[in-house]
Amino acid sequence: MNAWANIKTITKRELGAYFSSPLAYVFIVIFLLLCGFFTFMVGGFFERGEASLVRPFFDWHPWFYLFLVPAVGMRLWAEERRVGTLELLLTMPITSWQAIVGKFLASWLFLALALVLTFPVVLTVNYLGSPDNGVIFTGYIGSWLMAGAYLAISCMTSAMTRTQVVSFILSLIICLFLILCGFPPVINLVETWAGPRLVELVTSFSVITHFDGFQKGVLDSRDVIFFLSIIGFSLFCNSVIIRGHRAG
């Protein structure tokens, strides 16, 4: 009970911190502009003539998140270390796990809000045709889980450094790796010299492979577990890194 109260307090503070700076609004606006532009212009939403959001909309999400999620997560710990408030936070009567989960949840909820604000796309497709809204819903769930996986990685890299830019670049590199090992051109390249088992192993690490099921409306427990385990593992690393700082 007490643990949840502490997590809630941290989450509330972090959410407040997002909206007290223009960063949050800038982020949401950029995300929505990107979604709109890529769905309708680059993704060829109208030219396709089908009532579906899979290709024109969700396909771009792994790439949007590559730049946007590290920007959301980079300040979480780096800023605390730079300003020195980490000392304050960790001497309060909370465990470091509560702080980690509280911070992660705040950013994840923020990303959920950004995602929810793309609802005009859903309205549009419903107005123009009759899409399978169940598929759209699982697409959103998958997208949010994927954002969470990126975010947990950003939390981890943020704890590694005092500088937000370093955190941003580190998490971008790690997330790029997670995308590329399922990106068709890269897979084709790997196939030219590696056996099918190795290819399968590599693609199984990719967010694209696991996001694909959600886009098709399939809620596969393996995909859910994949994203959740990335989140769990990264946050665990996050706690180890923070303990490392304190041990000096």
């Binding site: 503070r13 407040g16 408030t85 000392e87 309060m92 009567p93």
Partner: peptide, 29 residues
Amino acid sequence: LIGYLPENAPAYTDMTVQGFLKFAAEIRG
């Protein structure tokens, strides 16, 4: 049981004084 004032008195720069004190009170239950 402890109240702690670290060296250089860090505080969350993105909060108001009132918001910061409320946060500190809330985390103390």
